[in-house]
Design a protein around this nucleic acid. Structure first.
Lengths: 184, 184
DNA sequence: GTTAATATTATCACCTGGTAATAAATTAAT
DNA sequence: ATTAATTTATTACCAGGTGATAATATTAAC
């Protein structure tokens, strides 16, 4: 079929790379970049199955809103005593190509609930001792239970345990110190 | 002046709320929602300084790309031995209303570099012992140095230290265990 | 009830960034 | 030089707007 479509193949690759790199470029911008006509860019997009700018922008934007709902939510709280939060795990939280949630998301959940319970605006978590019991998969509902073990003027000692379907998957101790907006 | 602009005020509030809640609605969809004409929606948007759908979508999308470049970047690596990564801190990473970066971002940086250095696809971080020396503000460049202390068939012991302008701000020990995509 | 002010709606021409289809020009291989 | 693949140009159309102007409510005050 295409014996001399070398240049075209190269252009297709350049197009794919460019769009992956900066998805908000219009066809005419891409035409300038590739040094071809707008018509050619459109043809190339069609054959490669790449949607138009507006759809590409929309895809990125929708992804954004979908991963900001992965935030944990406080469902019960007794200030400086205890608190409970929940978080649904999703695709975005996983190691690429797997169903296993990165521990940083569980850590974040723990930090967030600890901050709420201790009612701190900003904190330095001096020490954290963490134990993960098992991996967590996407699509599960995690529950974090936080309890304050001691409150001192200088710092607070807080425990957080995270459960997946009543099975403990994570626990940590935080030694937290409140910080103002000023530099220490 | 505006004696009977009560209903208009209410409509303006409804409009602002709706757009904040779901920013991807077109004027005609908003018109149906508010039970007014498209012309009115446009006028309202103008007086409230709300941009059109496409710009709103673009804003959300741009926000998305801007905070995914807050991700740490590996700049040097010797597999299973050591590695260095850098990350620029930004507004998005801070406790609301402050310039202090949440520890979860520093933890994430540490986890990411540890994963790269140990060349694991997915891992269970069994134990993490963490010490934060001081708070980190937005707008700084953090450098993480990771070194592998021991590699065994079952697990690896990894240290990560994070520096802000040569001052150590964070250190941790990870006991990491590689996991496949299968459930354990 | 009439009037004047304010609010809403309708209409029109125009813009951007596309789709879809077709014809014409270019280019490489034989 | 001929042929076939490839690229470009052209045209008509669409969605979701902007901006301006005019017509039509709606309401308060007289």
């Amino acid at each position: 079929m295409s014996f001399f479509s070398q240049s075209r193949k190269i252009r297709h690759d350049k197009l794919k790379d460019k769009i992956a790199e900066s998805p908000f470029m219009t066809d005419s911008e891409l035409a300038v970049f590739l040094n071809v006509s707008v018509a050619t860019v459109r043809l190339d997009r069609m054959t490669l199955g790449i949607p138009e700018v507006r759809e590409r922008v929309l895809l990125v934007a929708e992804k954004h809103v979908s991963d900001s709902d992965g935030i944990s939510e406080i469902i019960d709280i007794e200030e400086n005593v205890r608190g409970v939060s929940v978080m649904n795990t999703n695709e975005e939280m996983c190691f690429p190509g797997t169903d296993i949630v990165k521990s940083q998301y569980i850590y974040s959940m723990a930090e967030d609930v600890a901050m709420k319970v201790t009612n701190m605006k900003a904190a330095l978590i001096n020490v954290a001792n963490i134990k993960y019991k098992s991996t967590v998969n996407k699509g599960v509902k995690l529950v974090a239970r936080c309890s304050v073990k001691s409150v001192r003027t200088s710092d607070s000692l807080v425990w957080v345990m995270v459960y997946n379907n009543s099975v403990e998957v994570f626990r940590c101790k935080f030694l937290m110190q409140e910080k103002g907006c000023d530099r220490s």
